[in-house]
Design a protein around this nucleic acid. Sequence first.
DNA 1: ATCTGTAATGCGACTCAGTCGCAACACAAT
DNA 2: ATTGTGTTGCGACTGAGTCGCATTACAGAT
Lengths: 148, 148
Amino acid sequence: MPLPQTEIPGRLQMQLAERGIRMTGPRRAILSVIETATKHLDATQILRKARTLDASVDRSTVYRTLDLLKRQGLIDELDLMHLNGEGHYYERKLGRDHIHMACLRCGKITEFVSKTFESLKKQLERDCNFHIVVARLEVGGYCSACRH
Amino acid sequence: MPLPQTEIPGRLQMQLAERGIRMTGPRRAILSVIETATKHLDATQILRKARTLDASVDRSTVYRTLDLLKRQGLIDELDLMHLNGEGHYYERKLGRDHIHMACLRCGKITEFVSKTFESLKKQLERDCNFHIVVARLEVGGYCSACRH
DNA sequence: ATCTGTAATGCGACTCAGTCGCAACACAAT
DNA sequence: ATTGTGTTGCGACTGAGTCGCATTACAGAT
Ligand SMILES: [Mn+2]
Ligand SMILES: [Mn+2]
Ligand SMILES: [Zn+2]
Ligand SMILES: [Zn+2]
């Protein structure tokens, strides 16, 4: 994750509260997992971790909560080049977007913040008259350790 | 598709032949479908169309051929924001990459070629010492007709 | 503190995309 | 024509994600 841990835990809960969205036990568990994640997690991993906080959490609740957070623009969904199966990965959405690079050999995920990326998005909005809600740039290739 | 139809039909078959890859009936049907497509197709659509050319084509052969073409760098795989289900879409890879914008309201897919995108990729390769094989920029938002 | 309408949950069954092992087959080189 | 190897169809399977429904729990009102 590209973010400093200066984040207040519980921030996601606050953002939902501000929008008048109900808070529940399972939701708190899931939000907490997402907030404290140190890497990109898929739905199954989120379920497993959430269950250590609230053993009753169900798989469908995880998916429903992920949908809610996506609709609210609070998380991003990633493919990470589908290096391991067909599932998706999730991460909190924070101020600046970043690019994901996945090494096709060692699987390492690298993140990168780029001013050029920001310009590109602005250019898109202007030239195509398109209002961007979410932008995902995912790259596959070979990292510095694996290139030949 | 952003490409002029100045393409020779059969080009994909040639590219595989050049690489010493065997040509078969089912493969010819699938390649022909991909080559003559006028929009992004998913595996099920490719199967259905391929069967009009060779009725025996099986679903697994479609997936195996798509994998082959991906490995050979001849097609790109897209999510198109998973607007309709969890499947993936495919298109021939041609010289210049392009960006895909999906309207979250009407579902329209817009393509855009950008010099800034090319610079961004170069910047990534340089700054991150990463060798890019495939780069996918997919954007979700509201098109000119749907923005409010 | 209790009541109450509505939103969220667990459960189980289901759909759908994609994969895999294997026996039969077909390509292309000799 | 023969042959080895790559490819195919088939069918069974996995795993991600969805859905309907009866039950539960939240939060605002009393
Ligand atoms: Mn995907
Ligand atoms: Mn395209
Ligand atoms: Zn690597
Ligand atoms: Zn639209």
